[in-house]
């Protein structure tokens, strides 16, 4: 872990703790651009962090960036900072840069100074406002050049946000199980509850490792050389979401099914993020097709060689 990562992480975590919460997330869902929060992240130089020093950045590596995105995801990603950082890693420019999917849709496209499109270039574009389902985050559409240039970066961004969101959901659920009492004791003391949370913890840990591993692979081999790890991260965070969200809602019971309690802000985002930039099936098929083409005899050697020097 680099010193740079520690500094940025501390800044981002402090900022999110001070200036984000359910009300911010509610405003985002109502389509209100989080101007104050964005001004803060710009003042810290975060959107350009991955750009070179000549371009105004600090050449933050993808592995370190992923750690920042996980922290954003823990807070429900109230600003599209991860997307803007990733776009600036391709093409540094001032202001908020949106990151478009190959189909021309992008988180907060309407607020973007420019958008990185599927051709790998920045464009100024007019977006038609829309909403992601079921998170209600602004998810806008424009006519843009197609292509897969943003696919890997977008999948990594969303996996990282999911790893953070999964942690947050687990923490909320454990805290709730420790305070909610039935039959005279905290429900977390019942094995039927605690064993579910333990299983969820396993998935959360796996998601975190898959994402960190993908960040490391990109830092070493570039996005193109890390397709397997990025795809694996999207698969694992997506699979984890299915289980962890189910357990979280079961443990929270009726209160978690309401808008009054804040669990839904994160679970709905997880359900949206798992569909962005390729769902589990999309990435599993890519990984699987490549492995089947290489053949059974190569499957283990290929896997083992990925981190061998």
């Amino acid at each position: 872990m680099s010193e740079m990562r520690d500094i940025l992480l501390e800044q981002v975590e402090r900022l999110l703790a001070d200036q984000s919460g359910p009300e911010t997330l509610r405003q985002v869902e109502a389509g209100v651009w989080p101007a104050a929060l964005w001004a803060e992240v710009e003042a810290l130089g975060l959107p350009l962090a991955m750009a070179s020093e000549e371009a105004g950045g600090v050449a933050l590596g993808w592995d370190d960036a992923v750690a920042v995105w996980v922290a954003l995801g823990r807070a429900g990603a109230p600003v599209p900072l991860a997307e803007s950082m990733a776009a600036a890693a391709f093409a540094p420019a001032a202001g908020f840069l949106a990151l478009a999917q190959p189909d021309g849709t992008a988180m907060w496209g309407r607020a973007a100074a420019q958008v990185l499109a599927g051709d790998g270039a920045l464009h100024a574009a007019g977006f038609t406002p829309g909403k992601a389902q079921p998170s209600n985050e602004p998810w806008d559409r424009a006519t843009l050049p197609g292509g897969e240039a943003t696919l890997l970066a977008g999948a990594l961004v969303n996996s990282a946000k999911m790893a953070g969101g999964l942690e947050a959901v687990l923490t909320l659920s454990v805290d709730y199980a420790n305070v909610r009492k039935q039959f005279g004791k905290p429900i977390g003391q019942f094995q039927a509850v605690s064993q579910q949370l333990s299983q969820a913890a396993g998935e959360v840990a796996a998601a975190g490792v898959a994402v960190a591993n993908a960040g490391r692979a990109v830092a070493r081999r570039g996005l193109g050389g890390a397709e397997f790890e990025i795809g694996a991260a999207k698969v694992i965070t997506g699979e984890a979401t299915a289980l962890v969200a189910a357990v979280a809602h079961q443990v929270h019971a009726a209160i978690g099914f309401t808008q009054d309690y804040h669990l839904h802000f994160t679970t709905r985002r997880l359900w949206a993020w798992r569909d962005a930039f390729g769902n589990e099936r999309f990435w599993a098929q890519r990984i699987g097709r490549a492995a089947l083409a290489r053949g059974g005899a190569n499957a283990w050697p290929d896997l083992a060689a990925r981190e061998d020097g």
Binding site: A206, A210, F228, G231, A232, V235, I236, E239, E280, W283, A284, Q285, R286, I287, G288, R289, A291, L292, A299, L303
Partner: peptide, 8 residues
């Protein structure tokens, strides 16, 4: 299926 298993 193979992709999911290798990812895991």
């Amino acid at each position: 299926a193979v992709g999911r298993m290798l990812a895991r």
